[in-house]
Design a protein around this nucleic acid. Structure first.
Length: 817
RNA sequence: GCCAGAGUGGUGGAACGGUAGACACGCGGCACUUAGGAUGCCGUGCCUGCGGGCGUGGGGGUUCGAGUCCCCCCUCUGGCACCA
């Protein structure tokens, strides 16, 4: 009898579980508490990989724990099924993207069932289903009505390979996040969500996530939103009625502003430019556009720019200062214009040095400045005029004073700026949710009426989908041409589709009522289940999906559709599964196939390995793991159940007290450890219980003792969270009906948690010299006597006198000499 | 450069300010075996004169007592990066 047949068990229990239908969430109200466990839904680009193996093992542990605790648990799954991989595959194979998508969904669904994740399969859906994207469109229109979705022309990130625009969040290090090609800029009219309107609320509401979301995740979001406090300052343009508004975080350096710089592409440069400089600006603009994002991002690159010929007036000094255009100033941050203070700012200093512009010192030279050049170029100035004097003030006080003055004189105002940009949602691709807008020559942008939703995708496939720089939908002229819903005249549909992050910004709401037909979700069902109690997924979604979902939730709150402002109460970012110190990749040849691991060790051993590897948020290096060891442990646990010689139903009271104590301590610890997400330590405790039970059977109370049965049953229930097949095998071997998954969480008997004796450590000068077994209730005086009487303590003391004795009964005595 | 987080045996990792290294992997030994990559048992931080000494990246500090708290430094990982 070596162990059980893992594969046969997987076959057997899957059928039993399907029949029992164990994990269906109950929409009816009852006395049970409710829990909503969410894992990031899957993108169907192939079969499940090792990353899925980890996240699903962790997610399911908690979901199954809640089931065992008796909660009514919602644990749904769906597919994020629009997107580029399906479209690219369709082009390659000359077929419809739906084909690739649905094949992969079926493959993944089958794998997830085999992996024994406790999903409520009745709620399954996918985002490319018209029954789903109809409501994505409906939600878009609600945003549109409120001015939260709008169209504008601007320079956008363009991926030359995928032939589509990218959101800022999808540009990583100047490259397309998906295909890795170097991103360029294009001027296009595109749809945006006005997420910037929610910047402050996205920051403020983090207060309720503090301590519940991982700190690194909150930090990333905070930095991404990038709040900075400062002021707008208006500079009059000489010889015109115009003025240029700049944003600065250091208005206290205004006296040192010796020139202005505007972004070349914002239109501002064009307006200010004198006729003589126009051709120079044009040439510069061309040069800037050619530069790739990577070149532009390089801080090593020397500063470039052109003078616009115009001048402005520094409101503090009254001095005439030149206006330049340079690409180190960004069009879409602040006002697209800055006041340059080369005596204070490294970048301005570099620019001034390159073009021999005046430099004056206000407070102190920025760090790392070329002092010789600085001293020669600059003159120290007096930061004061007839009305305001900043001399001798610290940054804070000077800032406050100058802003007060600017506001009083109408030269500017206090303000806050955010790094966050609006969310560009248009994509020039086919396999996405169509934007439900009609462009009418008479009426402009007209919403498709709600009762005409969904705007269905036309049936395109193969070559028709090939990227041409505009949307494939534009080629479907029969589809695009449509009467204007308002005036009935000839009009055109919007031919872009939405970023798939739109689809995923509300899917967790759809789960609450997945077949609802009168809206995106049943408000009552959402009230019942939301917000999500536990969300698990990768931290790579920090500035994308997680931020967008928070934004969507807030807009829905403002519309009055939900009564909470944060969708995910608790968040866990699991680490990645790597191999031999690096992310798995084809080029490195270090890929590990989940299916192969499952084939070799079985589902339970792989799940156990993932959970036991370490803290859930740490990366798992598969090369350091031992799924074979996990399998050995599971077989060991299983043998326990088979060795039990005490019949079911026998009262454990009267069983071996030592083993019973271990069992009940394990139960108490297990509960605390799971609540604290210390899953790896939880597994270690279960291992200890298995070891103790083995010992009891072989060289202790023997297999017929009721305590052995109690221990084995406890192991079975605890293991059901991680190794559902093994747990079920054990449960059956112990003479119970399935399923152990709903057997109920054990509770620790307080009487069995009381220690009989504890080990007291006796230290001399903080070093351990002896250990004593003492009763837990021992009094301090007695313990002190025992400790001082220990031979090892006396030896360590030698003839030195005792100065002090710290007694922390019953665990510790420290003798100080 | 700025902002986070982390440095513990050969390895993954444990440790309410109170026994450093739980639990595993690996390794060594023993038992059972025709055999074992099965199973069970024992051992396993380093040094040692077997009394003990040294050990949580380095250096200081607080404390009766520091892996844990504070300060400085080093290294690594992640995020942002010409954001004014």
């Amino acid at each position: 009898m070596d162990g059980y047949d893992v594969k046969a068990a997987q076959e057997r229990w899957r059928k039993v579980w399907d029949e029992l239908d164990l994990f269906r969430a109950d929409d009816r109200d009852d006395e049970r508490g409710r829990r909503y466990a969410l894992t990031m839904f899957s993108y169907p680009s192939g079969d499940l990989h090792m990353g899925h193996g980890e996240v699903m093992a962790l997610h399911d542990l908690l979901a199954r724990y809640w089931v065992q605790r008796g909660f009514n648990v919602l644990n749904p799954i769906a597919w994020d099924s629009f997107g580029l991989p399906a479209e690219n595959a369709a082009i390659r194979r000359n077929e419809h993207p739906a084909r690739f998508t649905f094949d992969n969904i079926e493959t993944q669904a089958e794998s997830l069932r085999r992996y024994a994740v406790s999903f409520d399969w009745s709620r399954r859906f996918h985002t490319s289903d018209p029954d789903y994207y109809r409501w994505t469109q409906w939600l878009f229109l609600r945003f549109f009505e409120r001015g939260m979705a709008y169209r504008r022309e601007s320079f956008v990130n363009w991926c030359p390979v995928d032939q589509t625009v990218l959101a800022n969040e999808q540009v990583v290090g100047g490259r397309c996040e998906r295909c890795g090609s170097v991103v360029t800029k294009r001027e296009l009219t595109q749809w945006y969500f006005k997420i910037t309107a929610y910047a402050q609320r996205l920051l403020d509401d983090m207060a309720q996530l503090e301590g519940r979301w991982p700190e690194p995740l909150l930090t990333i979001q905070r930095n991404w939103i990038g709040r900075s406090e400062g002021a707008y300052v208006d500079f009059a343009v000489e010889g015109t009625d115009e003025s240029i508004r700049v944003f600065t975080t250091r208005p206290d350096t205004l006296f040192g502003a010796t020139f202005l710089v505007v972004a070349p592409e914002g239109g501002l440069g064009d307006r200010l430019c004198t006729p003589e400089q126009r051709s120079a600006l044009q040439a510069y603009l061309e040069q800037v556009k050619r530069a790739t994002e990577i070149e532009r991002l390089s801080t090593e690159r020397p500063k470039t720019g052109v003078p616009l010929g115009a001048s402005a007036v520094n409101p503090a000094t009254g001095e005439r200062i030149p206006i330049w255009a340079a690409d180190y100033v960004l069009a879409d941050y602040g006002t697209g214009a800055i006041m340059a203070v080369p005596g204070e700012d490294q970048r301005d200093w570099e620019f001034a040095a390159a073009y021999h512009l005046p430099i004056v010192r206000t407070v102190q030279p920025p760090e790392g400045f070329d002092n010789a050049a600085y001293a020669g170029a600059g003159t120290s100035i007096n930061s004061a005029n007839d009305e305001v004097d900043l001399n001798g003030l610290g940054v804070e006080a000077a800032t406050a004073r100058i802003i007060d003055w600017l506001e009083a004189r109408g030269h500017g105002e206090r303000t806050v700026n955010y790094r966050l940009r609006d969310w560009l949602l248009s994509r020039q691709r086919y396999w996405g949710c169509p934007i439900p807008i009609v462009h009418c020559p008479e009426c402009g942008e007209v919403a498709v009426p709600d009762d005409q939703l969904p705007v269905l995708l036309p049936d395109l496939r193969g070559a028709d989908l090939a990227p041409r720089g505009n949307s494939p939908l534009a080629a479907a002229t029969g589809w695009a041409r449509t009467p204007c819903p308002r005036c009935g005249g000839d009009a055109e549909r919007d031919t872009d589709t939405m970023d798939t992050f739109v689809d995923s910004s509300w899917y967790f709401l759809r789960y609450c009522s997945p077949r609802y037909e009168d809206g995106p979700f049943d408000v009552e069902a959402v009230r019942r289940w939301m917000p999500v109690d536990q969300y698990i997924g990768g931290i790579e979604h920090a500035t994308g999906h997680l931020l967008y979902s928070r934004f969507f939730t807030k807009v829905l709150y403002d519309i009055g559709m939900v009564d909470f402002v944060e969708p995910f109460t608790r968040m866990l970012n699991q680490g990645q599964v790597i191999n031999r110190g690096a992310r798995m990749s084809k080029s490195k040849g270090n890929g590990v196939d989940l299916g192969e691991q499952l084939e070799r060790y079985g589902v339970d051993a792989v799940r156990l390995t993932m959970v036991f590897a370490g803290p859930p948020e740490d990366d798992v290096d598969w090369a350091d793991m031992s799924p074979a060891g996990s399998l050995r442990f599971l077989q060991r646990a299983w043998r326990l159940a088979n060795d039990v010689a005490c019949p079911p139903g026998v009262d454990p009271v009267g069983g071996d007290i030592g083993l019973r104590r271990t069992t009940h301590h394990t139960v108490r610890d297990a509960t605390e450890l799971i609540e604290a997400y210390r899953f790896n330590v939880f597994v270690a405790r279960v291992m200890e219980l298995v070891n103790a039970t083995r010992k009891a059977i072989d060289s202790g109370c023997g297999p017929a003792d009721p305590a052995v049965r109690e221990a084995a049953e406890t192991v079975s229930v605890l293991l059901s969270l991680v190794a559902p097949y093994t747990a079920e095998e054990m449960w059956a071997a112990l003479g119970h009906d399935p399923s152990v998954a709903t057997a109920g969480w054990p509770s620790a008997e307080p009487a069995l948690l009381v220690e009989q004796s504890v080990t007291c450590v006796v230290q001399v000068q903080g070093k351990v010299r002896a250990r004593l077994e003492v009763p837990p209730g021992i009094d301090e005086v007695r313990l002190r006597e025992l400790a001082l009487a220990e031979p090892a303590v006396r030896r360590a003391l030698a003839d030195r006198g005792v100065r002090n004795v710290i007694v922390r009964a019953p665990r510790l005595v420290n003798v100080v000499v």
